[in-house]
């Protein structure tokens, strides 16, 4: 039970063990622990980041969708307006065209009426002249009443 040289031997053993642990055991094990810690922390951070990004992307997608909806409704509105305009315009054009056609037709009718009137007048004049000629041929000397005849003919023609 007394203290003896065992003490020295034990101290040497102890020193060797501590040295060995410090040199070959602690660093690799501790490093692997630290590395794993870091790995896990990195993984967690990455996961969080991913989630955040997903969140952002979702937000962005919603925004884009909303914008697209707005745009499309705008386009539809515009198209409707344009269509109404076109219909209105074509109605206008049609009306004008119709009016123009009516006018043209009226003018033509008028012209034809005038022509017919002219023709009729000429025919009536000719008939009247011939009738007058026949009536007068019996009584009137053509040569004598030449100027009267031509005056009448002029008036009728």
């Amino acid at each position: 039970m007394s203290i003896n040289a065992t003490l020295i031997g034990q101290m040497i053993t102890f020193a060797l063990l501590v040295w060995f642990t410090m040199k070959y055991i602690w660093p690799p094990l501790f490093d692997s622990l630290e590395q794993r810690k870091k790995k896990i922390a990195d993984g967690l951070a990455a996961a969080e980041k991913g989630q955040e990004q997903m969140h952002l992307a979702e937000k962005k997608a919603t925004g884009v969708l909303k914008q697209a909806k707005e745009q499309s409704s705008e386009i539809v509105n515009l198209a409707q307006k344009r269509a109404t305009e076109i219909v209105e315009a074509s109605k206008d054009t049609a009306k004008k065209e119709g009016e123009r056609l009516i006018l043209v037709a009226k003018a033509q009718i008028e012209q034809e009426k005038q022509q017919a009137k002219e023709g009729l007048r000429k025919e009536v004049a000719a008939l009247a002249l011939r009738a007058a000629e026949q009536i007068l041929s019996a009584e009137i000397d053509k040569t004598k009443h030449q100027d009267i005849l031509s005056k009448i003919s002029n008036q009728l023609g």
């Binding site: 063990l17 060995f20 642990t21 070959y24 055991i25 690799p28 094990l29 490093d31 692997s32 590395q35 794993r36 870091k38 790995k39």
Partner: peptide, 16 residues
């Protein structure tokens, strides 16, 4: 020392 050296030699940051 033997036990811990064995552990240290096999140490990885992956699944232990």
């Amino acid at each position: 020392v033997w036990f811990f050296k064995m552990a240290a030699d096999r140490a990885t940051a992956g699944v232990p």
